[in-house]
């Protein structure tokens, strides 16, 4: 692929471009178990204070992209073999998750992953593990989370394993907030939740985005909802970015409608078969 070659050769992004850029992923390739190539050159950017959606079908590589940013890959025997990841202009692809959380990048994993036997409040407190702060500050951070998730306050002393799916998702997001991140990687927040709860969660995400200035990179299968709340979107297919654009544009795009919103009578196709569509690679731009 000649595109990959030009990508590594191209100079790093200029200062003018990094000014508003928080996260930039440049042409990364991820291999699991030394043999399974999952990401085949993914590039994306998140600008300060934005919500960016990462869309695509099952197995497209959304979660893998998020995990390669937060570096949770190593625990799954995955490895970023090519490309770079930069956060606020610094290379972060060799940092541990712990170091990244300290820098302000926190991932909320797919499937919520609450600590089941800990209470909701204890779950939240573990989120502040990386911040060595006083009891007072800790209580304040808790209140901040409860302000956005009043439901969690009511359930603060229940074991989180016994709370509802929506509450667990809130716990997971709240737990990430406790680390005081400037960027949250949110993986599949709508999974297994009722549409009303999904709406509620996304409203809170938007709230956090505007009031706390947290940037979001959001992996979602629920394209419709995600594009409604996001500013910008990337569509992944088979480990490649096949399309990107601002959310409104994507939502009205005929191909997107056809493939992801099911608004077409024709049989399902892949982007690969669409000749007229220029597969956009950021590194060629």
């Amino acid at each position: 692929m000649s595109a990959a070659a030009t990508a590594t050769a191209s100079p790093p992004t200029t200062d003018a471009a990094t000014a508003t850029k928080v996260l930039s992923v440049n042409n990364i390739e991820v291999i699991y178990d030394h043999v399974i190539l999952v990401l085949k050159g993914v590039s994306l950017e998140v600008a300060e204070g934005r919500i960016v959606a990462l869309l695509g079908a099952n197995g497209a590589g959304k979660s893998t992209t998020l995990k390669s940013i937060s570096n949770l890959l190593s625990a799954e025997r995955g490895e970023v073999t090519k490309g770079t990841i930069e956060f606020r202009g610094k290379r972060v692809d060799r940092l541990t998750t712990n170091e990244l959380v300290r820098m302000g990048v926190c991932q909320v994993m797919e499937g919520r992953h609450c600590f089941q036997h800990l209470t909701v409040e204890e779950n939240l407190l573990t989120g502040a593990y990386t911040r060595k702060i006083s009891r007072g500050d800790l209580a304040e951070a808790l209140e901040r989370v409860y302000h956005y998730f009043p439901r969690l306050k009511q359930r603060r002393s229940s074991q989180s394993g016994y709370t509802s799916g929506g509450e667990q998702q809130m716990t997971a997001i709240g737990r990430a907030l406790m680390a005081k991140p400037s960027m949250i990687l949110l993986d599949e927040p709508s999974m297994g939740l009722a549409p009303q709860i999904v709406e509620e969660i996304f409203e809170i995400v938007r709230d956090l985005n505007t009031k706390e200035r947290v940037s979001f990179l959001l992996a979602e299968q629920n394209t419709m909802v995600a594009l409604r709340y996001a500013n910008y979107g990337y569509i992944l297919e088979n480990g490649r970015v096949v399309m990107d654009g601002d959310a409104k544009g994507l939502a009205s795009n005929e191909d997107v409608k056809e493939f992801y919103l099911g608004l077409s009578t024709a049989g399902r196709k892949s982007f690969r078969d669409v000749k007229h569509y220029r597969r956009r690679k950021r590194w060629l731009a």
């Binding site: 937060s70 949770l72 712990n98 600590f115 680390a179």
Partner: peptide, 10 residues
Amino acid sequence: DDHQAALAVG
């Protein structure tokens, strides 16, 4: 409770 989630929160 959950190795991976623990890693994820740092």
